[in-house]
Design a protein around this nucleic acid. Structure first.
Length: 830
RNA sequence: GCCGAAGUGGCGAAACUGGCUAGACGCAAGAGACUUAAAAUCUCUCGAGAGCAAUCUCAUCCGGGUUCGAGUCCCGGCUUCGGCACCA
């Protein structure tokens, strides 16, 4: 730490202190603090980061995931992501694009609200303060942000359009209300978000959480399952992100099979199965505890037991039910008829069957499903084998479920015996379908998006309830429905949404009939705020439309989006959904929001995630001050591959700082007389090529390494570099270390920003050499290198290799085989 | 359990679609120059082993295999990280 203080000391001090100054160093030393503050101001004064969105001829939309403005301030994780984005954006700017690189704040939501509660402050006071702090830190980071396009999701001029968006979905029948379970703390008498439930208990008071049914708003994202899945095949996104989304959407092909309920006239149960081929092995049915059929089929003898089980499972909270593995359930006393065998099978209810997936009912095939096997074992239900592996007989007992679909043939399945699993699926489905008992269906696990939050800190859902007319959308010209400033936004024991305590706010009139009516008092999910923010950026400032048609056509879809993979499913999927809905509404001309998405890695420290409790959080401010933003940015990118992240360590920064010092020194001492060195220029060309190829691939660490390598050549043996050797390097460095690059560029006599100077072009002829190196392998071992002409034939190369005694000694007698790989090597087999 | 990514020096990491003596670049370490001294700067060394030496052998998680040639491809196994987890 003491080191860098000397480096940062003012030039005046350095120049007048004879003991710290090398006699030959008579130039002003590199002072990042001064350079960076100078250029921060100049960029503002000159509007360097501004882009004329209406007139841009080569628009390039560089989007970064906007942060939640936490009270802790900018996290290195944010900075890492932003820097990676910024380099990509600045590079495109240097390539001649009009780059729009905006940023905003995702400031609504439970994080802010909870933190405000903890601090005893109002989020409306806290958030602007946090934003101001973020802004200060972001400014120091040297990002090429056009702040005229800032968005803040808590600004009524923004959430007016979030509410508008809700209404568009409502108008298209994609927003609907239904009762759904929420986590409920019986002690705090409030609704809890999933994040607030720890191990099935309320994080605040430790009381066991229950589930409660509340009427909530949902978006029918499930209706878009098929196109959202299909789009994944054509978009350029990180493979890991696409895989996560595919899994989340969860397509599965199967059939609905209908079982008649015995002894109850007209009653039947339809199940969803992906294994219709195992119908002969369906020895019982299981329905979810919430299944409505239980109201009609349970005989009096079993009513009490079923009621008790239902009540018990309803009490369990949402998280613990999902994680408990032990099977529980009760027999309902009712029977169904297996449509294939005609046998009477028991109907059970158990919470391992989920109401929200499929039909909420399954046919249990314990012989060929692990969960059914376990359940049948626990409750002593019959297990029948209907698929046999190559080594099994039809009656080989099952010690576990046999699930090897690829090597099984049907047994004990009537006319279908002997068929493979694959072949029998469609045959059995067709056979059942003929008799009206089945239908092939495709099922998705993607469930509808619950957008209601029984909270305060969010945009009020723009709906009015009228006793006469029912739910009515707030007329668009009355938006925004402003979130009122209330002091009692804390959940209390009244058990209702905070806004529902404010008559003066929710009492209104019906837009349809004019009679007294009541506003919806829930607010919408934060993910709705962020599901469309990219559409707003170009059009910020327009109060008449959410996004201008012309600007949208010009700037969207987003050219490059970079963000954390923690948003692989929810945020990124919701963005795609909203985009498709707006496309269907003919409000935008594209179906996918982001042409290219890349997930960056995570920065950890000492092998662990940074967290306050671990005390390993890196505060960017200290590093900005100590090393300068340029060195800090460059170090973050040098840690490892951008898409993998890595471990942060202080000691690594000195390396990039030294590089910047040398760059500075090179410019300050460069010569303009004589000619530049041809070898150095050749290396420069290769570096231009390498850096230009690496940046679009986000391979920043190797781009930096290449520049360092060039620096070593440039300053080899204390040689004095020529201006022609240094000048393009400043341009290459610019995306990484923008402040110092600007400073050096100006000192070289340029008046325009380095970012408007154009990217140096790779000149292949300048990089070409008269001879190339060819590796020589003998029996697979590399034994040397020879110089040959680029177009040398195999014989030429062989002759050259034999002329080298150190290689020739390994070749005794005539070679069996010689292989020449042009430009790479020659392989001799003896 | 399922899915995804990855295992290379003391450390972070390079290595294009199998191909220029694996380890670029950087950190740390060691030696030297400069200095009264330290810092900074500059120069050199730096995977392991053997040898005076030129040089040789062994090394990319482990075990097999394909190939003139494997960190890279194939088969089997181990470990770590990230995500999803009763989805029928």
């Amino acid at each position: 730490m003491a080191r860098c203080i000397a480096v940062r000391s003012s030039s005046f001090l350095r120049m007048t202190n004879p003991t710290t100054e090398r006699p030959d160093r008579d130039y002003e030393p590199y002072d990042p603090t001064r350079v960076e503050s100078t250029w921060r101001q100049r960029w503002v004064d000159r509007g360097t980061n501004h882009v004329d969105v209406a007139a841009a001829t080569r628009p390039y939309f560089q989007l970064m995931m906007f942060p939640y403005p936490s009270a802790e301030g900018l996290h290195v994780g944010n900075l890492y992501a932003f820097t990676g984005n910024d380099i990509h954006g600045r590079f495109h700017r240097l390539q001649g694009f009009d780059v729009l690189e905006p940023l905003g704040y995702d400031a609504f939501g439970i994080h802010s609200e909870n933190f405000a509660l903890k601090m005893g402050m109002h989020p409306g006071t806290l958030i602007p303060r946090n934003i101001a702090n973020f802004r200060r830190q972001l400014d120091r980071a040297g990002l090429m942000i056009d702040w005229r396009h800032e968005v803040d999701t808590t600004d009524p001029q923004y959430y007016k359009w979030t509410q508008w968006l809700f209404l568009q979905l409502y108008k298209r029948g994609l927003a609907y209300r239904k009762a759904a379970a929420v986590n409920w703390c019986p002690s705090c008498k409030t609704v809890l978000a999933n994040e607030q439930v720890e191990g099935g208990a309320c994080e605040r008071c430790g009381t066991v959480v229950e589930q409660r049914n509340l009427e909530q708003w949902f978006f029918k994202i499930s209706e878009y399952s098929a196109p959202l899945l299909a789009d994944l095949d054509v978009i350029d996104w990180s493979e890991s992100t696409k895989t996560a989304q595919r899994h989340w959407i969860g397509k599965s092909e199967g059939a609905h099979v209908t079982f008649t309920v015995a002894d109850v006239a007209g009653a039947s149960i339809t199940v969803f199965t992906t294994r219709p081929d195992t119908i002969y092995g369906a020895t019982f049915l299981v329905v979810a505890p919430e299944h409505p059929v239980l109201a009609t089929i349970v005989p009096a003898s079993h009513r009490a037991a079923v009621d008790e089980y239902q009540a018990c499972s309803a009490k369990q909270d949402l998280t613990s039910r999902k994680t408990t593995k032990e099977k529980s359930g009760v027999f309902t006393g009712a029977y169904a008829l297996n449509p294939a065998t005609g046998e009477r099978v028991q109907i059970w209810t158990a919470d391992y069957v989920l109401m929200e997936y499929g039909t909420g009912a399954i046919m249990a095939v314990p012989g060929h499903d692990e969960r059914d096997f376990e359940f049948a074992t626990v409750f002593g239900l019959p297990i029948t084998r209907v698929v046999a592996g190559p080594d099994d007989a039809a009656d080989t007992p099952l010690s576990e479920a046999f699930v090897d679909n690829d090597h099984g043939r049907l047994v004990n399945s009537g006319a279908f015996n002997g068929l493979t699993v694959a072949a029998s699926k469609s045959k059995i489905t067709a056979w059942l379908a003929e008799r009206g008992r089945a239908q092939a269906v495709t099922n998705y696990r993607l469930h509808d998006w619950c957008v209601s939050r029984q909270r305060y800190w969010g945009p009020p859902i723009p709906i009015i309830y009228c006793d006469a007319c029912g739910p009515q959308p707030v007329p668009e010209d009355q938006l925004p429905v402003v979130l009122p400033h209330i002091d009692d936004f804390k959940p209390d024991d009244s058990g209702i949404s905070p806004l529902a305590r404010h008559k003066e706010w929710y009492e209104t009139t019906c837009p349809a009939c004019g009679k007294a009516a009541r506003r919806e008092t829930d607010v919408s999910d934060t993910f709705l705020d962020s599901a469309w923010y990219f559409l707003r950026y170009p059009s910020v400032g327009r109060s008449d439309v959410p996004f201008d048609a012309e600007l949208t056509k010009r700037w969207l879809p987003v050219d490059s989006y970079i963000g954390g993979n923690e948003h692989a499913v929810l945020h990124l999927l919701y963005c795609r959904f909203i985009t498709r809905v707006l496309f269907d509404a003919q409000l935008i001309p594209f179906t996918s929001p982001f042409k290219k998405f890349r997930a960056h890695g995570m920065i950890i420290r000492d092998g662990a995630k940074m967290s306050k409790s671990r005390g390993n959080v890196v505060n960017p401010d200290e590093y900005f001050t100590q090393w300068g933003a340029d060195a800090f940015r460059m170090y973050l990118m040098f840690i490892g591959p951008f898409e993998e992240g890595g471990d942060f360590r202080d000691s690594g920064i000195s390396g990039v700082k030294r590089f910047l010092d040398r760059l500075w020194a090179s410019v300050m001492t460069m010569r303009t007389d004589d000619a530049p060195d041809a070898d150095v220029l050749r290396k420069l060309q290769l570096t231009i090529k390498k850096v230009g190829e690496d940046i679009p691939k986000l391979s920043y660490n190797t781009a930096i390494a290449a520049m360092m390598e060039y620096m070593n050549v440039l300053r080899r043996a204390e040689r004095v570099p020529h201006r022609a050797e240094v000048e393009p390097l400043v341009q290459l460095v610019a995306p990484f270390a923008p402040h110092v690059a600007e400073e050096l560029w100006e000192r070289m006599g340029h008046t325009k920003s380095v970012f408007d100077s154009g990217w140096p072009t790779f000149d292949a002829s300048a990089a070409a050499t008269e001879t190339i190196e060819l590796a020589v392998q003998v029996n697979g071992k590399t034994r040397g290198v020879v110089q040959v002409a680029p177009d040398a034939t195999q014989d030429d190369a062989y002759a050259a290799a034999m002329a080298e005694p150190s290689i020739a000694k390994f070749v005794t007698g005539a070679p069996k085989k010689v292989i020449l790989v042009k430009g790479r090597l020659i392989s001799i087999v003896v």
